[in-house]
Write a protein that binds this DNA or RNA. Structure first.
Lengths: 229, 229
DNA sequence: CGACACTTTGATCCGATTCAACCATCGTGG
DNA sequence: CCACGATGGTTGAATCGGATCAAAGTGTCG
C-alpha cells in the first residue's frame, strides 16, 4: 500500500486552512478511484456509502424524473466535493453523477464525514460555504427557468460553462469537456432541436462556434447582449 | 424588561434536543418583532444584520430580477428559521421576505449565529438538516420547471401549499393564508391569466374551489391524477 | 466500411402568453 | 352609508415561441 501525497489536495478550497498533518490524516482515510467517460460515479437513490473529491476531470450531475425525463443539475469541475449527501442529513444520493470525461477522484466512506467535520471545523465551514454557493446557484437557475425565454437560458448556460471550464483558444473560450446539443437541452429545459437552431443562428452571427461535442463561445459580451443582458 | 418564555420555542424543530437552560440562554439574545401583512421582514441585498424565527404567521420569500420580474422562492410557515444568510457564508439577504399575514417573529443579531452553533452543535445539525431539505426542494422545483407543463406546475404548487399550510374545512383543504392568482403565477413561472383559467376549469371539475385570495383543494388525489401524477 | 451517435433543417401544431375589455369585491373617505 | 377608486379576478381573441413530427446529413469508432 502506498501513501497519497498531500500536495494532491493542499491547494483545494475544501481543505483551505488545514495543516499538513490534518491533510495527511484526512488522506489516510481516502481511496483513489478512476471513472471512465460516461460511467457513473454514483447513482440516484442508491445508498450514500461514500463521498468524493474530484481530482481531475468533469462530472455531470443528473436527476431523472419518474417518467424518464432528465435534467442536468450542474457540472462539477476538479477540486470540488461531490456526493456529500451525509452533510445534508441524507442517506441516499439525490442524483446520478456521470463522468463527462475520464476522471480521477478520491473516495471516503460516508462514516468518515462526521469525524472529519468534528475534528476539523474549518473543513466543515468550507463545506457549508460551498453548500451556500450551490444553493444560490440553484435559486438563480430557478428564477431563470421561471422567467427567461429559451434563448436566454441557453446563452447563460453556455456563458457559465465557458467561464467555469473554458480553455482559451484562438477562436474564443472552448468549453472544457465534450457536450452535446442534448446535454445543453437537458440543462435548460428545452429540446436538442431548439438548441441546434440557436447554435447555428449564433454561429452565423459570429457569437459561438461549434462542432460535434465541442462548443466555443467566440464573443461572450455580444452573446450576453444578444439575449438581453 | 420582560423575559420570553421558553415554551415559545421548546417544541420547534430547530431547537429539538436542547435543554431548558440552553433555550433560556438562546432566548436571552432574542428580541420579539411583529410584522404586519404585506410588510417586509428583510429585503434582498440588504445587509444581513439578523436572522429570524417565525413564531406565528406565514412569510413569502421573493426574488426580484434586474428587469423587475418576481419569483416566489417559497412560503415559510411558523416554527421555521428565515434569513439565515450567515449560516451559508453570506453577508446579505439573497431574497426579500414579506409577511403574507400579520406575523410574530423572534430576531437575533447575526453575530449570535456563530456563537449559538458553536455552543449548541445540536442546533447547528438541526439547521443544516433544514438547509438540506430546502436544497432538495429547490432541486425538485428546478426539475419541475424544466420539464413539466404549466398545469402540472400549478397543481403541484397548490397541493404542496395545501399539505403544508392547509386547514381542513368542510369543502377540503383551505390554503392557510391569502394568496392571489398573481402569487401562484409567480411561484410557477406563468401568468395570472393562465392560473385563473386553470382554477376555473378545475373548479368546474370539482377539484378546487376558490374565491378572492382564498384557494381550497377539494380533492387532492383527483387533482394529482388530473395533471398526470 | 458499416453502424451508431450526433446534428441539421423543414413543416406543422399547440400551449401559453399577450392584448384587451370587463366584472366583482374591498376598503376608504366625503 | 354610499360612492368611488383600487385591487383582484374572469374571459375572449389573436399571436407566437418552441415542441413535436419527420427526414436526411455528417462525423466517429470499432
Amino acid at each position: 500500500m502506498y501513501t497519497l501525497d498531500r500536495s494532491l489536495i493542499a491547494n483545494l478550497a475544501p481543505f483551505a486552512g488545514l495543516t499538513p498533518q490534518d491533510l495527511d490524516h484526512i488522506l489516510a482515510k481516502a481511496r483513489p478511484a478512476r471513472v471512465a467517460e460516461g460511467r457513473p460515479v454514483f447513482e440516484q437513490d442508491a445508498e450514500a456509502h461514500s463521498f468524493f473529491l474530484l481530482l481531475d476531470g468533469h462530472v455531470r450531475v443528473v436527476k431523472t424524473t419518474a417518467d424518464g425525463e432528465q435534467v442536468i443539475m450542474r457540472y462539477v469541475s476538479s477540486g470540488q466535493l461531490i456526493g456529500i449527501a451525509k452533510a445534508l442529513g441524507r442517506s441516499s444520493y439525490p442524483a446520478t453523477a456521470v463522468a463527462a470525461v475520464d476522471c480521477m477522484l478520491l473516495a471516503w466512506p460516508s462514516e468518515a464525514w462526521s469525524e472529519l467535520t468534528l475534528r476539523y471545523p474549518g473543513f466543515a465551514a468550507n463545506t457549508y460555504k460551498a453548500v451556500g454557493e450551490r444553493m444560490e446557484e440553484a435559486h438563480d437557475r430557478m428564477v431563470e427557468l421561471a422567467t427567461a425565454q429559451v434563448d436566454r437560458r441557453v446563452a447563460h448556460a453556455l456563458l457559465r460553462l465557458a467561464k467555469q471550464t473554458g480553455r482559451k483558444t484562438d477562436e474564443g473560450m472552448l468549453i472544457g469537456f465534450p457536450i452535446t446539443r442534448q446535454d445543453i437541452a437537458d440543462m435548460t429545459g428545452t429540446t436538442l432541436h431548439t438548441v441546434s437552431r440557436l447554435l447555428t443562428a449564433w454561429e452565423y452571427l459570429g457569437l459561438v462556434k461549434s462542432t460535434r461535442k465541442k462548443v466555443t463561445v467566440v464573443d461572450a459580451e455580444r452573446l450576453q447582449e444578444h439575449v438581453g443582458g
